[in-house]
């Protein structure tokens, strides 16, 4: 008798745990990012100043094709999601954001172009997403580092804060694109020039490992891309607010 009741208890416990785990799977994806991936010691003084004095923040995103979603509207890509998230968190600040797409151009080609890109716009913050094209073309990592360094210097001289954004975590192309040298060199430049580096690669890998997103998925659909970009935009907004030390007072 006793054994039967234990058995019954066991089944009930199993069923309960299954129900719990099923619920956990149903829950919306949170795409949490561990704090260490969103903290930086390098400040964003121009951003802090702009928010404090002018209450407007002009952001320019310079990037390659992974800064958009092909066949979706621009509103779904991470730059627009970043703008929305910032507006949400800093309701009293006007956030202007523009995107300069430079598809298929290496860091060196873009670095030479940056003066022209920032000239008219005078952004407070430039988010430079780079590395993918260089990795795909196996550009010499030393030359890549030099180019990124020159580009960042140009932007800083033009009076803008700079955030570097590295490559996407792309598990399907791992055997084809050697990513580590480019990630390492971007980290080096960020250290040398004391600017924040948004580690898109580590963050996306974290999501894949946590199970937030299955980035191996061969889906032809657009939903996954939209969700990932939304999460990237929100993570980036946290990163900027943290780096610029925007206090809760300014956030209101």
């Amino acid at each position: 008798m006793k054994s039967v009741s234990w058995l019954r208890f066991g089944i009930a416990a199993l069923a309960a745990s299954l129900a719990v785990s099923a619920r956990a799977e149903d829950a919306p994806q949170t795409c949490e990012v561990p704090a260490y991936l969103l903290t930086t010691e390098s400040p964003l003084p121009k951003v802090a100043e702009a928010v404090k004095n002018g209450r407007t923040l002009d952001i320019l995103v310079v990037g390659s094709r992974s800064s958009t979603i092909v066949s979706a509207s621009d509103g779904n890509a991470y730059p627009a999601r970043l703008q929305a998230a910032l507006k949400d968190k800093l309701p009293s600040v006007t956030v202007n954001l523009s995107v300069e797409l430079q598809p298929k151009k290496t860091a060196e080609e873009i670095a030479g172009n940056l003066v022209k890109l920032v000239e008219g716009k005078r952004p407070n913050l430039v988010i430079w997403q780079t590395g993918t094209v260089d990795a795909m073309r196996s550009i010499d990592p030393d030359e890549f580092r030099q180019a990124v360094n020159d580009g960042v210097a140009t932007l800083q001289n033009a009076g803008a804060d700079v955030i570097l954004m590295n490559l996407q975590y792309s598990p399907r192309t791992e055997t084809l694109i050697s990513v580590p040298p480019y990630i390492d060199n971007m980290r080096v430049v960020a250290q040398q020039r004391d600017i924040p580096l948004f580690d898109r690669f580590a963050i996306m890998r974290q999501w894949n490992e946590q199970g937030d997103f299955d980035l191996f998925n061969p889906t032809h659909g657009i939903e996954l891309a939209k969700q990932v970009h939304d999460c990237l935009g929100r993570a980036l907004s946290k990163f900027i607010i943290d780096a610029a030390h925007l206090s809760p007072a300014q956030q209101n």
Partner: peptide
């Protein structure tokens, strides 16, 4: 063997998130 593997990936994998990276194919 490698060529067989990536040819398969190239023909079956079309995640819009990775349009840029797939250019390597």
């Amino acid at each position: 063997i490698f060529l067989a593997e990536i040819s398969y990936v190239a023909t079956s994998f079309e995640n819009p998130l990775y349009t840029e990276e797939m250019g390597i194919m």
